[in-house]
Design a protein around this nucleic acid. Structure first.
Length: 431
RNA sequence: GUGGGCGUAGCUCAGCUGGUUAGAGCGCCGCGCUGUGGCCGCGGAGGUCACGGGUUCGAGCCCCGCCGUCCACCCCA
């Protein structure tokens, strides 16, 4: 529609109910899980001084080079919409200097200017956690296990966890040196693309999918071989911990991820149900230099983020029963009032105060029409109030999911209705 | 940034080699049933055929452009 109709910008989407119920479920489940692990919610600005991201994710990263939404405000300050979650959380940590270990979770949009396609959008959404102030590998394990338990809780089954260690700054630098020397010697064996651009970010070649790069990388220096004893030990504790928690994992020495801030532990979760290239549903790692790079005192950290849109794609691809179950959940009761609407006003108010989820009709529609709306709402019960009920001082309860006409309706005194329906809802939720 | 497919009703789509009032299913509203949803029957509302040009006696259909969308590459959530 380019006929003047205003629409959402390219690569962005409106999520309406009932599809958004899945979002409520995912974010709500993540919030519960994060609280259970002792993480507190952080709400921070969706835009930051562009330096936060340049110094954070690295100026040579693809995201910083070509995908950032940068703008200048009226005060001539240069900002960028956040392309990912970690850098701004660490900026907030540096600014407020909370007592470590500091554990924060978030749910936020993230913005990247790129061509939209399956599972990739210009505005997508992530839930995630960051833990700052400890380099203990057991805190890496808290982050990874939180992610794993979260995926279990939302019903994902076909998830693969890949782990790797980048080493600390010296190991990493040494590896990059070895890699650079190796590529210089064998430049002709790189794929066409990387022959031109490999030197800006040699690590990128590691996850190139072209045959030429793949075979070259296989024969070249490896990250594990470049790790110092301390980094090797750190990684060994992480993998042993995964085994102790019975979380299946595979080592992937070529897993480097897109942001430059990673040190030591890196990991990524992929869905086996997603066939396309966008099968990563979450990932993260350790970033022991990031706080320092953003002007704070040296503070190690580890975190992870997961894309909500990707989680939904993965659940759908698995044909998870969770998807339909969550989408079909509606209100529990629906008030049908053919006496004008005042009775529905007071009854819905009392029911809601008692914790019952209830909807009603408006516009003085016919009973037939209101019942139709009740049916559509997904409500289990219709609460009928007509002239008979008003005069008799009762409400008729109609079970909308019973087929047998004789068994589906009964009357409850007006004074008892709220308690009665609240009880029905309580029993229903036990099932 | 590069390349390809597709834009017809709220949704999913049909529309023959260009031919006169543009169709279906689902959804929506109403009626059959002056107090009762889901099934059934009947009726109704809803479309400048994305947009702008062009060719033609005539364009939803052909050509050009443009926007959007989907998909692939790069890379990621």
């Amino acid at each position: 529609m380019s006929d003047g109709q205003l629409t959402s910008p390219p690569g962005t989407h409106d999520v309406l109910s009932p599809a958004s119920r899945l979002w409520e479920f995912l974010i709500g489940t993540f919030a519960n899980e994060a609280r259970r692990y002792g993480f507190g919610l952080i709400v921070s600005p969706m835009f930051e001084d562009v330096a936060v991201f340049h110094r954070g994710i690295g100026e040579q990263s693809d995201v910083a080079r070509k995908e950032m939404y940068t703008f200048t405000d009226r005060g001539e300050r240069t900002y960028a919409l956040r392309p990912e979650g970690t850098a701004s959380v660490v900026r907030a940590f540096v600014q407020h200097n909370p007592t470590p270990p500091w554990k924060a979770w978030y749910a936020t949009p993230a913005f990247r200017y790129e061509r939209p396609q399956a599972g990739r959008y210009r505005q997508h959404h992530q839930v995630g956690v960051e833990a700052l102030g400890s380099d203990d590998p057991y805190i890496d394990l808290e982050v990874i296990s939180l992610a794993w338990r979260f995926y279990e809780a939302i019903g994902l089954r076909r998830i693969t966890l890949m782990v790797n260690s980048m080493g600390h700054a010296e190991c990493r630098a040494e590896f990059v040196e070895l890699l650079t020397a190796y590529f210089e010697e064998n430049e002709t064996r790189l794929c066409d693309e990387h022959t031109k651009v490999w030197s800006t970010n040699p690590l990128r070649v590691l996850d190139c999918k072209k045959d030429s790069c793949v075979s070259l990388v296989q024969e070249g220096p490896t990250l594990p071989a470049s790790l110092c004893a301390e980094c090797r030990d750190h990684f060994a504790v992480v993998t042993a911990g995964l085994d102790a928690l019975e979380i299946p994992w595979t080592a992937n020495p070529n897993l480097v991820r897109g942001f430059d801030y990673y040190t030591r532990t890196t990991f990524e979760f992929a869905s086996d149900a997603l066939a396309n290239a966008q099968n990563a549903i979450g990932g993260g790692g350790r970033y022991d230099r990031l706080a320092e790079d953003l002007g704070g005192s040296p503070t190690p950290g580890v975190g992870f983020g997961s894309g909500i849109e990707r989680l939904i794609l993965a659940l759908e691809a698995e044909e998870s029963p969770v998807v339909s179950a969550v989408r079909e959940a509606g209100v529990f009761a629906y008030v049908v009032d053919t006496t004008g609407g005042l009775a529905a006003l007071t009854l819905t108010s009392s029911l809601r105060a008692a914790g019952v989820s209830v909807d009603r009709a408006f516009d003085r529609r016919s009973m037939k029409s209101q019942l139709k709306a009740a049916d559509r709402s997904g409500a289990r019960w219709a609460l009928l109030i007509g002239d008979q009920e008003t005069h008799g001082g009762y409400v008729t309860l109609r079970d909308l999911r019973v087929g047998d006409e004789g068994e589906r309706q009964y009357q409850v005194p007006r004074a008892d209705v709220v308690a009665h329906v609240a009880e029905l809802q309580r029993k229903n939720s036990e099932i």
